[in-house]
């Protein structure tokens, strides 16, 4: 057992060394790139939103049409092989906007289609996007429950 503990202590020291020698990411540069890419995607979204605000009867429909258009944009850029490059450059600036969400679905669909349409593409399309929907629905339902109870109590 002593030997085990010695080994673990030795490892702790090594893990510190690993941290110490690891190349440091350039936080300012990475954040600036994420800002640029994420901001640009939101800017495009704003143009689309303004367009649909003029053409759609309600704000809700304008938002829905905007999200659908941005998802289409994300899928098209993925199919063209551009979105992964955008992610390499912009990091979470490409991942966080709804276009990145679309990219997770499209990239998985394209990749796993090679195992067939049902067991591949169909089964694995939501490999990365699935958890977003799962936890989004759980959080939305619970939040809605609290809000509903609060409104019931306060009458």
């Amino acid at each position: 057992m002593d030997r085990d503990r010695d080994a673990i202590d030795g490892h702790k020291e090594y893990q510190r060394l690993v941290k110490q020698l690891a190349p440091k990411p350039n936080a300012a540069k990475e954040a600036a790139r994420a800002f640029l890419v994420g901001g640009t995607l939101c800017l495009i979204g704003q143009f689309v939103l303004d367009f649909f605000r003029r053409t759609q009867p309600t704000e809700g429909e304008a938002i829905a049409a905007t999200l659908a258009t941005m998802i289409l944009l994300g899928v098209v850029l993925t199919a063209l092989g551009v979105y992964d490059t955008l992610g390499e450059f912009g990091g979470l600036g490409a991942a966080v906007p709804i276009t990145g969400f679309a990219n997770t679905i499209a990239s998985a669909a394209m990749d796993f289609r090679r195992e067939g349409y049902v067991v591949g593409m169909g089964a694995k399309m939501f490999l990365i996007a699935g958890p977003v929907i799962v936890f989004g629905i759980i959080a939305g339902t619970l939040t809605g429950l609290v809000a509903w109870l609060v409104s019931a109590v306060s009458g």
Binding site: D84, L86, L92, F112
Partner: peptide
């Protein structure tokens, strides 16, 4: 890549390591 990590066209930023 697809076995150990992610779909090929997924937007992943590689780390310096």
């Amino acid at each position: 890549e697809r076995q150990y990590r992610y779909p090929i066209e997924l937007n992943i930023q590689r780390k310096p390591t």
